[in-house]
């Protein structure tokens, strides 16, 4: 049997009294996400050709691509459904979708979770 004793971690704990806390002060201090982080999906309407591969592969049915004019498409995302897997980004052969590092997406109202990306000139006034 190994030699055992009481308070094996005491020294470690005491040392930490004089150290900075291990936690960060988020949300008082902004926190950034690493480059690889899969956050909110961004849509580039000018690149989309409306093949709807993204819709077909999305595991949670969070994307809707709709045609708004000749060769013009808009994308609607339900952020409360999206699981941020970025499969849509992989599925899109035209690189019309991209993930961003944005992660503060919680909303009190479900309706605010629905975001639509339109081509710039289509923006409703």
């Amino acid at each position: 049997m190994k030699k055992t004793r009481v308070g094996k971690m005491a020294a470690c704990v005491l040392r930490h009294v004089f150290k900075k806390p291990a936690t960060t002060r988020y949300p008082f201090v902004k926190s950034s996400s690493p480059k690889a982080f899969r956050g909110k999906i961004v849509f580039y309407p000018e690149k989309c050709v409306g093949c709807k591969m993204c819709m077909r592969d999305c595991p949670s049915g969070a994307i809707e691509i709709a045609q708004t004019g000749e060769k013009q498409f808009e994308a609607t995302f339900d952020l409360s459904k999206c699981i941020y897997c970025a499969q849509c980004v992989d599925s899109c052969l035209k690189k019309a979708l991209e993930f961003s590092g944005e992660f503060e997406l919680a909303r009190l109202d479900r309706r605010q979770c629905i975001v639509t990306f339109r081509a710039p000139h289509q923006k409703t006034p």
């Binding site: 291990a22 996400s33 690493p34 480059k35 690889a36 982080f37 899969r38 699981i83 941020y84 897997c85």
Partner: peptide
């Protein structure tokens, strides 16, 4: 947290790495 940080950097998420 050290390994969680590595996982998010490699895969894009702390859990459900995809």
């Amino acid at each position: 947290e050290v390994v969680m940080d590595i996982l998010v950097k490699l895969t894009g998420n702390r859990v459900n790495y995809g």
